[in-house]
Design a protein around this nucleic acid. Structure first.
Length: 568
RNA sequence: UGGGGCGUAGCCAAGCGGUAAGGCACGGGACUUUGGCUCCCGCAUGCGUAGGUUCGAAUCCUACCGCCCCAGCCA
């Protein structure tokens, strides 16, 4: 087993199936070929990432090919803006389609030819029933359908009508082309499904060339077969469509032998759901349109664009995808798993910085007035190659407000009256006096430091349990920090059908901290930089802040905090 | 009441007739100049339920139960 080739250790039903197909020589010398088929009508989210990375990984692991093909058969819903964002997102994720970027609409002409041949073969007919009538004739879940009165239309008449549909002679919605299959089938998809509808609409790629557009069930299998896709993966809800998929491909192989030589097969797997978020396009759109978030790329959104802007790495998403696995069982993955993957990838890569989010002033009373001393800090613990930096220390600093407690519980080992704590990479200080304002709020701590306790050359003999971060007041840089948290307070915002999912939004999903104090080296941050703010979490320099004067850092994910958990 | 799919730990998920992998979460401990990281330990006499076949069943058979999807000229 090697790192690059995952076929040995990835144990899921799809890999198993492919290995069997390969073992049986089912593909001849044809390489494994997958595809990701997005409809350009919205932004991609992490659920799509699962599909993208799965398809891509299969191609990579089996030395096959991976296509990107836009399913653009409905001009009314689709836009160029979305093809651009989808391409950018997939590229960022690292899935490589090489030179195989396709559009379903590229094949409109050959598909039309296929439709013609179906008609000639007597397997498709033009139906004049209106939408409502078609619905009624289709029957119900428990009752069989009734055959359309146009089902027996002669081939020549069908041919004539279908050509005239293409020529734009008839109004939108007035006629459709249907497959002649089985109106009594228990599977509604087989009750003479619509193959083409009349749509006088301008398409983002073909313009006004067409006035008929193919339906998914006709278009998708044919496009797969045309591209030589060996394994066509899709989500579970398409399971019912598989007989129709096969019907189309079998007919394509028979009727279009000059272009279709391979019978692709559809395999379904469960789509990804995650706790504390929503994944449906409709709900995500509502969040954007009703202003609950700042757009599709808001860092709280589960969109690829949102995750990217938050600072999540593509590497973490790929790791997440592999850990989640693939199966046919409906599942909702704990967001904590994604958080774990994010932290794990950043642990050894993100340089450390000291940043105080909620400051409490500390004056060191026995420090020489006006003196500044530089202390040396490692950028990444345990990684010499990441180097060191100098951080200025002085007699007035800020520490995190919650690193002090006036009346601490037994296991609290940070600062408290009379207690000692180490200032990271500097000295041990003792809290001598607590200063409060008129309302009893702590406004300042008076401490003394131990000259002998200097980090790296400690001769004090003291052993303190607590180590806290700090920032020298005089040298502090000011930055803005966006603390992002789960968008929803409940695990499953969609659980209750009665209650609008909006009501579960976390009012604290974004806390903006302005005038946050940071060690001066933070100003060296350049776009794309990720840091660990000591004891706080991983942060990403926002690539597109609204205010360019002050750096804005987005919290990617908080550090694990076993103290916070213990407190509960 | 038709057709299809799915039930293995709190959440994912291997397992394919030989006696329940792994990850996350959780609990405990060690280490620690990040209450981080790392490292140990623990965590299903049990695989939706009930029967049956078998020397042996999560795996095979039967019946039941529960959840999800399908009646777009959306994908």
């Amino acid at each position: 087993m090697t790192e690059k080739n995952g076929t040995e250790f990835k144990s899921n039903f799809i890999y198993t199936m492919i290995k069997e197909d390969l073992g049986k020589g089912l593909l001849g010398d044809k390489p494994i070929h997958t595809r990701f088929p997005p409809e350009p009508n919205g932004y991609l989210h992490i659920g799509h990432a699962k599909a993208i990375l799965l398809n891509y990984a299969i191609a990579r692991d089996f030395n096959g090919k991976f296509n990107l093909r836009f399913d653009d058969t409905n001009p009314i819903k689709e836009e160029q803006e979305f093809v651009d964002s989808i391409i950018a997102d997939i590229r960022w994720l690292g899935a490589d389609w090489e030179d195989r970027l396709f559009f379903s609409s590229d094949y409109f002409e050959i598909k039309y030819e296929f439709a013609l041949r179906l008609v000639k073969a007597g397997r498709a007919y033009v139906c004049d029933l209106n939408q409502e009538e078609i619905r009624q004739y289709r029957g119900t879940l428990t009752e069989p359908g009734v055959e359309s009165p146009y089902r027996g239309r002669p081939v020549e008449e069908n041919l004539d009508l279908f050509k005239r549909m293409r020529d734009g002679e008839f109004p939108t919605g007035s006629r459709v082309l249907r497959a002649k299959i089985d109106m009594a089938s228990g599977n509604l998809n087989m009750r003479d499904p619509v193959l083409y509808r009349i749509l006088h609409a301008s398409h983002h790629r073909t313009g006004d060339k067409w006035s008929i557009y193919p339906m998914y069930d006709f278009d998708h299998p044919f496009s797969d077969a045309l591209e030589g896709i060996t394994h066509s993966l899709c989500s579970i809800e398409y399971t019912d469509h598989r007989p129709l998929y096969d019907w189309i491909v079998e007919n394509a192989v028979e009727l279009m032998p000059e272009v279709v030589k391979f019978h692709s097969h559809q395999t379904e797997f469960a789509r990804l759901n995650m706790t504390h978020t929503v994944m449906s396009k409709r709900k995500l759109r509502r969040l954007v349109e009703e202003g609950y978030v700042d757009g599709w790329d808001d860092p709280r959104m589960p969109t690829i664009a949102g995750l990217r802007r938050r600072g999540v790495t593509a590497e973490a998403i790929a790791d997440f995808q592999e850990r989640v696995g693939v199966s046919r069982a409906e599942s909702t993955v704990d967001l904590a798993l994604l958080d774990h993957c994010i932290r794990q990838k950043l642990e050894t890569k993100a340089p450390r910085r000291m940043v105080v989010l909620d400051p409490l002033k500390v004056v060191i009373t026995n420090w020489t007035a006006g003196k500044t001393e530089n202390v040396k800090m490692e950028n990444i613990p345990g990684d010499e190659s990441a180097g060191y930096r100098e951080v200025p220390f002085s007699g007035e600093i800020y520490i995190e407000r919650d690193d002090f407690m006036e009346d601490p519980p037994k296991k609290f080992f940070r600062l408290a009256p009379g207690r000692e704590v180490r200032l990271k990479s500097a000295y041990i200080i003792r809290c001598e006096e607590v200063i409060k304002d008129g309302d009893g709020n702590v406004t300042e701590l008076r401490c003394t430091y131990d000259l002998l306790s200097k980090s790296g050359s400690d001769r004090s003999g003291k052993k303190v349990k607590g180590v806290i971060h700090w920032v020298s007041t005089e040298h502090a840089a000011r930055v803005t920090v966006n603390l992002y948290d789960n968008l929803f307070v409940v695990e499953n915002p969609e659980e209750d059908d009665e209650k609008d999912f909006i009501s579960h939004i976390n009012p604290q999903s974004l806390i903006v901290c302005r005038n946050v104090l940071a060690e001066p080296s933070i100003l060296e941050a350049t776009p794309g930089n990720r840091y660990q703010f000591l004891r706080k979490g991983y942060f990403y320099l926002d690539p597109q802040p609204s205010n360019k004067d002050v750096p804005v850092f987005n919290r990617i994910v908080a550090l694990r905090d076993s103290w916070a958990r213990k407190k509960k």
